[in-house]
Amino acid sequence: MSKILLAGATGYLGGYILSELLRQQHEVRVIVRNRTKLEQKNYEKVEVIEAEITKLESINNCCDNIDFVISTVGITKQKDGLTYMDVDYQANKNLLKEAKKSGVKKFVYISLLNGQKLKNLKICEAKELFVNELKKSGIDYCIIRPNGFFSDMSEIFYMAQKGRVYLFGDGKYKANPIHGEDLAVVCVNSIENARKEINIGGPETLSQNEIASIAFNIAEKEIKITYIPNWIRKIILFIIRTFTSQKFYGSIEFFLTVLSMDMIAPEKGKHTLEEFYGNLKNNHM
């Protein structure tokens, strides 16, 4: 089988990709910041490099004898004072440089659905700058564009458990978020796929109202939804952009923006949001 370098293996999606790579019996090398986070998952067959991808010298020759690279590297929660440009752009650029130097066959990068249209958002700006670097690099590539994870929908369930869900607008915008396990299959299979870009979502396209209804049903609560006018969302965006740093507002800016638009991608996968909310309920109990 092929030998794969996975960057971001200890993250939400990276963990599922690592499991899928091993299930398909690939040889795997991973780059992690903290080795102990990986060892807790008992991946004895995995070759581990402990390094800071934001520092080029720390990943020197990391791609030697590697056939394919898969990168999920990106900031999901702000920490260590790093910016989106430091991580989503520069860290991936460092990895790409090593991949080219070592003659890697293909580089698979996980970005965001509609990232090209949302470059005014800090997270999308950094990701799309790297996408441009990848496209002009000369190396074969595939850009995976998921429209959101089930885990992003967790807060709606927790609100439902408390008895009331708050939505911006009228709750009619639609999305089909995907489970990490389903997305991991697409990511791993993309190494042998000729497509350059893959937009991908989960198996069910639902409005925000429908998502809230599922959450209330699983939580066994009466449906109570409060709709917040869109102008309030715009004021919140203005305030956080004006009075806080991008290290604070980047992720909030992204979610407040995508909540006011349809985020629909080709349907794929087997896991449903109802199943996910059921697991959240069981784990909470």
Rank of each mutant, 00 (worst) to 15 (best):
K97I: 12
K97M: 10
E98F: 10
E98A: 13
A99R: 07
A99G: 07
K100V: 12
K100N: 11
K100G: 07
K100P: 06
K101D: 06
K101I: 06
K101T: 08
K101V: 03
S102E: 14
S102H: 12
G103S: 11
G103M: 07
G103T: 09
G103Y: 09
G103I: 10
K106F: 07
K106Q: 08
K106V: 10
K106Y: 08
F107D: 06
V108W: 02
V108I: 15
Y109A: 03
Y109S: 04
L112V: 05
L113F: 13
L113Q: 13
N114P: 00
N114T: 01
N114Y: 10
N114M: 05
G115M: 01
Q116E: 10
Q116I: 02
K117G: 00
K117I: 01
L118K: 08
L118F: 04
K119T: 15
N120C: 08
N120G: 13
L121I: 09
L121M: 04
L121W: 03
K122A: 14
K122H: 12
I123T: 12
I123K: 08
I123F: 04
I123S: 11
C124H: 10
C124I: 05
C124A: 12
E125D: 12
E125W: 03
A126H: 04
A126P: 02
A126E: 03
K127I: 00
K127F: 00
E128G: 02
E128D: 04
F130E: 15
